[in-house]
């Protein structure tokens, strides 16, 4: 019933590479750790709400890093908080992805010059996959960041380990 049985005119058999199948499964349900630090967190919440809807991409917030695929680092990372983020990153199981949202997480943001307690970019502590610029980035920008992450996942391979 519905669309799927009209898709395949020659029986319900689909042939694909295992790589493609795994990548498609992984990119369609990137479960993120619900982790908001500062102003960008409000834009991330607005993206998950009904107007811009993150859920249609399969992105649900989870409460613990041990069940999450991705962290969206949204907001300024301070020196005090950076150690805790490193610990959260180490608690996540592979494969894991990091989206750095906002200028503060990319490079220190507006606090780069005189911020004595601001870490100038989260990539000094953990490896980042996608950078989303903006202060704060619009929800559409965050959705594009997610699409870029999905492209990156689509090109992964089970044989070769990604960085």
């Amino acid at each position: 019933m519905g669309l799927l049985d009209k898709e395949f005119s020659d029986g319900n058999i689909v042939i694909a590479k295992v790589d493609d199948l795994f990548n498609w499964a992984r990119l369609s349900s990137v479960w993120q750790l619900g982790f908001g630090l500062a102003c960008c967190a409000i834009e991330m919440m607005a993206t998950s709400m009904s107007h811009y809807d993150f859920d249609r991409f399969g992105v649900i917030p989870r409460n613990t890093p041990r069940q999450a695929d991705a962290i969206i680092i949204s907001g300024t990372v301070t020196l005090k908080m950076a150690l805790r983020i490193k610990r959260l990153y180490e608690q996540m199981p592979e494969p894991k992805y990091i989206i750095s949202m906002g200028s503060c997480a990319n490079c220190g943001g507006p606090y780069w010059e005189h911020g004595y307690h601001v870490l100038k970019g989260i990539d000094r502590v953990i490896p980042v996959d996608v950078y989303v610029p903006g202060c704060p980035p619009r929800p559409e920008a965050l959705l594009e960041g997610l699409l870029k992450l999905q492209e990156k996942i689509r090109n992964e391979s089970l044989r070769k380990k990604s960085a």
Partner: peptide, 20 residues
């Protein structure tokens, strides 16, 4: 004490570089 007028940034804090 950071808000003093003659404050200078430390180089590293717990392995993280503090200045830009």
């Amino acid at each position: 004490h950071p808000l003093r007028k003659d404050y200078k940034n430390p180089e590293f804090y717990q392995g993280m570089k503090v200045p830009y």
